[in-house]
Design a protein around this nucleic acid. Structure first.
Length: 608
RNA sequence: GGCCCCGUCGUCUAGCCUGGUCCAGGACACGUCCCUUUCACGGACGCGACAUGGGUUCGAAUCCCAUCGGGGUCACCA
């Protein structure tokens, strides 16, 4: 990462700095910084409620939150629901819940009541609402002011006409720019157009962009200059009466007191528009910082469509491997109509429902792209925050042994976050590393904590498993937790190695291969040893993992085995049905003496 | 294509501003070995990068320029 000099500091001190041999006047940028610091620091995260919280959005929120906290400022959540067709209240609520789950709590924003009754946003400032759709009157007042200032005007062109012009320009390899009507003059209130608009004629409102150079003093990238004439007259109020994103953002940031805007680089190109409007409206310009983007490992954007792609690939692979697999056959089995599957496979639809049904059927995991996906799949919020906290930011600190400090919690980020240390290069989302962080977080827990969180997770996402685990008393649950913890990278991972406790003593199947190898091979050596060992288990009075383990070792030594595998593998197959399970001491201890003996008995009967 | 941003191991990155301590450090992944009753965990070691070309300098990953490469954005979506 290339570290910037402390531009802000230099500017506030001298108003100029020396770059190479060139002296640059920073009067304008200096004023921006001044504006930002003479009022309470406020950052904001402003998602549009059109789905779940994207993992990239989570990082933006985390950084905005951390920056505010590091500076003793306030973190605000604003819901940008000006797209009436795509926005929903459920989505807004889901996003808030995801943020809360991650531990990113807003000082200002809508109220959210948590399960324990605590309310996030209880002390929010009164700024006239945090949902943009309910702030229409505020935007309209500012629109009219801008129109009367001669810095905005109604446009009456038809969308189709403009689209045609745009297409023609693209076809001719020319840059399309909206052409300002001849009767519109900068700085002059166009009464005729306004009258038509007020009279009810269909129209949009366009911002009247001056031909001037715009400088965005970006705290991450340095200053970004856009030459005069690059901005055209863009739409600030749609025909449906709602402001566009650009206008709403600018008005809200001013009226809500936003001092620092930290957002992803995809917004960089928008910023000159925002700055131009802020100047026209006489607003204070917030400090900007644009963060690098996050991509998949293959360089594509992380999006919901990744799930559809994965499910599509799994299905097509299956169809190639097995010609009897067809959409029609699938339809009956997965509860999705045949046309829906056909459309999905032809990439005519990216339906999440179809993708999930197919993935479940073929037993493939869909890539997580939203916070909810990670949550459902057993990732821990602290691991996620730690991991995304390292995507484009780094504390730049060393541990005592000289290694980089990269394991930290939100409190650490909130204390040490600094814009100067935000990187400029795009990052790829390495799921392996996230998984490793998650495994480490699980490894760092106590067995008690793991047991509680695992059970809580099952209650929420795997109720059937939760029900069968609930049969264990606390003591056995803790033994299980101890056995599971080192082999689970996620909470969901712990399900498989715990399968042996979730079935009844007479209900689990025996894996034929494992039975053959460990019990039947060499004239049933394994089965005979097992039968011989059974009384040793019966004789154990204090049924603990240690006592069981000891009995196995003693028996193996007596039999002159090179290692205990000769008896432990037959035993393992007997009580779990497979050759794979957690340590045998724990496995048997969790089952209990009665179950263990019953299972061995059933096994011996089965292989006889 | 126009405009804008970026370029250190496969990946996340430290180092860059303030040139020498860097034949570039850490983590994940990968490989080998050790531990081991299975699966895991753990331990040791290893593999592996300054995009390229010029320039400045006694000295460049660090400063300058060019080239090449990657990305973003060009909506009545946000």
């Amino acid at each position: 990462m290339r570290t910037r000099s402390r531009e802000g500091e230099r500017r506030t001190r001298g108003g100029e700095w020396v770059r190479g041999t060139e002296r640059v006047w920073w009067g304008y940028a200096w004023a921006m910084t001044e504006n930002a610091v003479d009022r309470p620091l406020v950052t904001r995260f402003a998602p549009s409620p059109t789905g779940h919280l994207h993992i990239g959005g989570a990082r933006t929120a985390l950084f905005c939150w951390a920056f505010a906290k590091s500076q003793g400022g306030r973190f605000m959540l604003r819901i940008e629901d000006t797209d009436a067709a795509r926005s929903s209240d459920e989505s807004a609520k889901g996003i808030m819940e995801d943020l809360a789950w991650l531990g990113i709590e807003w000082d200002d924003g809508p109220k959210l009541t948590l399960a324990d009754g605590r309310v996030i946003g209880a002390n929010a400032r009164d700024v006239g609402g945090y949902f943009q759709a309910r702030r229409k009157h505020i935007y309209n007042a500012e629109i009219e002011r801008l129109v009367r200032l001669g810095r905005a005007y109604p446009g009456f062109e038809k969308t189709e006409d403009l689209d045609a012009k745009r297409k023609a320009a693209v076809a001719a390899k020319q840059t399309y720019r909206y052409e300002r009507p001849g009767d519109v003059v900068a700085g002059v209130f166009n009464e005729a157009r306004w009258a038509r608009a007020v009279a009810g004629e269909a129209h949009v409102i366009r911002f009247l962009a001056l031909s001037e150079e715009i400088v965005v003093a970006d705290q991450v990238l340095g200053d970004v200059k856009i030459a005069a004439g690059e901005l055209d007259d863009f739409v600030i109020r749609k025909a449906d009466g709602f402001p566009t994103y650009h206008f709403a953002v600018v008005v809200d940031d001013e009226t809500m007191g936003t001092t620092h805007v930290l957002r992803a680089q995809e917004h960089l190109a928008n910023t000159p528009r925002h700055v131009a409007m802020q100047k026209a409206l006489g607003y204070r310009v917030p400090v900007y910082g644009h963060m690098p983007l996050i991509f998949n490992m293959d360089g594509t954007k992380m999006s919901k469509r990744d799930k559809a792609k994965a499910a599509r690939k799994a299905t097509k692979d299956a169809m190639v491997k097995d010609k009897t697999v067809t959409p029609a056959g699938l339809a009956g089995r997965i509860g999705v109509s045949e046309p829906a599957i056909t459309d999905f496979l032809a990439a005519q639809s990216d339906s999440i429902e179809v993708a999930e049904a197919l993935a479940a059927h073929f037993g493939v995991a869909l890539p997580e792209v939203e916070v909810w996906d990670f949550r459902r799949n057993g990732y821990l919020p602290e691991a996620i925050c730690n991991f995304i906290g390292l995507l484009g930011w780094n504390p730049g600190m060393k541990l005592a042994d000289g290694k980089d400090l990269e394991k930290f919690d939100n409190a650490f980020i909130a204390k040490h976050f600094a814009m100067e240390r935000i990187g400029r290069t795009n990052a790829k989302f390495d799921r392996n590393k996230l998984l490793s962080f998650n495994a480490d977080a699980i490894g760092a827990m106590t067995d008690d904590a793991f047991a509680d969180r695992w059970v809580a997770w099952m209650n929420e996402h795997e109720p059937a498993a939760a029900k069968s685990i609930a049969r264990l008393d606390r003591g056995r649950l803790l033994i299980l937790a101890k056995a599971l913890r080192p082999r689970a990278k996620t909470l969901r991972d712990a399900l498989r190695p715990a399968a042996f406790v979730m079935v009844g003593d007479a209900d689990y199947p025996f894996d034929p291969a494992a039975v053959e190898k460990n019990l039947n091979a060499a004239d049933k050596t394994g089965a005979k040893l097992l039968a011989e060992f059974k009384p040793r288990l019966e004789a154990i009075g204090d049924w603990t993992a240690e006592a069981i383990h000891g009995a196995i070792e003693v028996f193996a030594r007596e039999k002159g085995m090179p290692n205990p595998g000769g008896i432990s593998q037959p035993l393992r197959v007997a009580v779990t049905g497979t050759g794979v399970s957690p340590g045998l001491g724990e496995t048997l201890a969790v089952l209990g003496k009665a179950s263990t003996l019953a299972r061995i008995g059933r096994c011996l009967e089965t292989v006889k």
